[in-house]
Design a protein around this nucleic acid. Structure first.
Length: 317
DNA sequence: AGCCAGGTTTAAT
DNA sequence: ATTAAACATGGC
């Protein structure tokens, strides 16, 4: 089996970054456990199981990646590695964000140092980020994760490899042909089911070109996507952060973010979307990073699950 | 038990 | 312009 080395820009904490996927009972597409990340990725109509683990340190990061079955063509290998680099944010230099926070926001700066090396995990396609966002509207992440697992098993292609079945995230064509009533049966509200199907249909038909919108303005993307019933401002902003790497937008109506702003900036209960926007105004183009760090810091304290701790225990063992 | 959880829409003031 | 209710479900 062929192995490939990725050297992300330092600092990078592999377990802290990819560990987000290991936090819930149900894992369906992104699989993380004990320092190892796995996921199915498509290249030229073929599916590969990609496995990644850290072989470096936070300061001197190195990630070793292998693919199964071993890709025959060199081009396929490069594409898989590029996708992994994108998902891990290998190209991102977080120190620029840290320095900006240090200048304008001492509270946030302290949090960035606690989560040193955390990078925003990205989805391989914008469509995946959009569907994830819809599933996570007004519901606990654990619930969304569970229901999404059912969605993936029902509508995602799977491959059998290494004595296991691995699922690919559903493609637009698959969800576009789905019956909303069937999606409703998985546990989603009927309105969310309709929303997912309508979005998938518009992507399939080319009415919405998600990948082409990567460089479009927030206003343009909002205008285009909010035509789909069930997609609002938060969904678009979240999708832009997770799927497009657009960190100058702030998913301000995020329940986790509002809770974090309430806690760390010592604003009383009932923090509004506007409060969150004002609190992070000075972060400018790094607003998305700021949101991620605040949400993470809040979640780590609340749920007491730091992937780094689990990893260290593994190393001691 | 009941309320909240990475919201959005519709239909009321 | 604001505000309330409805929507599904799992966890605490």
């Amino acid at each position: 089996m062929s192995k490939f080395i990725i050297k992300p820009i330092s600092p990078f904490d592999f377990d802290l970054t990819l560990g987000v996927y290991g936090g819930f009972r149900t894992q369906s597409v992104d699989l993380y456990s004990r320092g190892q990340f796995e996921r199915v990725l498509p290249v030229e109509a073929r599916y590969y199981l990609v496995t990644a683990s850290s072989t470096g340190t936070v300061e001197n990061p190195e990630v070793t990646v292998s693919a199964s079955p071993p890709p025959a063509k060199k081009g396929a290998v490069e594409e898989l590695v590029d996708k992994m680099k994108w998902m891990m944010g290998a190209d991102l230099d977080m120190t620029v964000f840290y320095e900006h926070a240090k200048k304008v926001d001492p509270i946030l700066f302290q949090i960035t140092q606690r989560l040193y090396g955390l990078k925003p995990p990205r989805t391989p396609t914008v469509f995946e980020a959009l569907i994830i966002a819809i599933t996570e509207q007004q519901t606990a992440l654990a619930v969304a994760s569970e229901l999404r697992g059912r969605l993936v098993k029902r509508y995602g292609e799977s491959i059998h490899i290494k004595e296991g079945r691995y699922y690919q995230f559903p493609i637009p064509e698959s969800l576009a042909g789905a019956d909303p009533k069937e999606i409703r049966k998985l546990g989603f509200s009927f309105r969310k089911a309709l929303c997912m199907v309508e979005a998938a249909q518009k992507v399939k038909s080319g009415e919405i070109e998600l990948e082409a919108l990567r460089s479009a303005s927030l206003e343009t993307i909002l205008e285009k996507l909010t035509q789909v019933k069930g997609i609002g401002r938060w969904t678009v902003e979240y999708m832009m952060c997770r799927g497009m790497g657009r960190y100058n937008v702030l998913p301000a109506n995020d329940a986790g973010l509002k809770a974090a702003v309430s806690k760390f900036y010592k604003i009383g209960r009932g923090v509004t979307e506007g409060d969150a926007r004002r609190a992070l105004e000075q972060m400018g183009e790094f607003r998305g990073h700021a949101a991620l760090y605040l949400i993470f810091a809040y979640a780590l304290e609340k749920y007491d699950l730091d992937p780094r701790v689990a990893r260290r225990q593994l190393e001691l063992y």
